[in-house]
């Protein structure tokens, strides 16, 4: 009656997708915040952290675009 297979698939995929995007965004925010504080304490510091934060935010942007791709039927 109820399609348990597709239900479990939806649950697992949603859990993984939400966890991945929240993890990436959280690490990005943490690195960004720490780098901002390091920079305020000592100019020129926290460069690596800031760079990594930017990369993670870039990954988030790609994930958002993937979301738009999934929503718009004309793209697939």
């Amino acid at each position: 009656m109820i399609e348990w297979e597709s239900f479990i698939l939806v649950a697992v995929v949603s859990l993984v997708a939400a966890s991945v995007i929240v993890t990436i965004a959280s690490f990005g925010i943490r690195l960004f915040e720490n780098a901002t504080h390091a920079r305020a304490a000592e100019p020129g510091a926290g460069r690596i952290g800031m760079g990594m934060a930017r990369v993670l935010f870039g990954v988030c942007a790609v994930l958002v675009l993937f979301g738009v791709y999934l929503i718009v039927p004309a793209f697939h």
């Binding site: 239900f7 698939l9 995929v13 949603s14 997708a17 939400a18 979301g67 999934l70």
Partner: peptide, 15 residues
């Protein structure tokens, strides 16, 4: 993020 992931997964995986 959970809402987005769940809605997109549910519309694309047929549940």
């Amino acid at each position: 993020a959970s809402t987005t992931a769940t809605i997109l997964a549910s519309t694309h995986l047929g549940f």
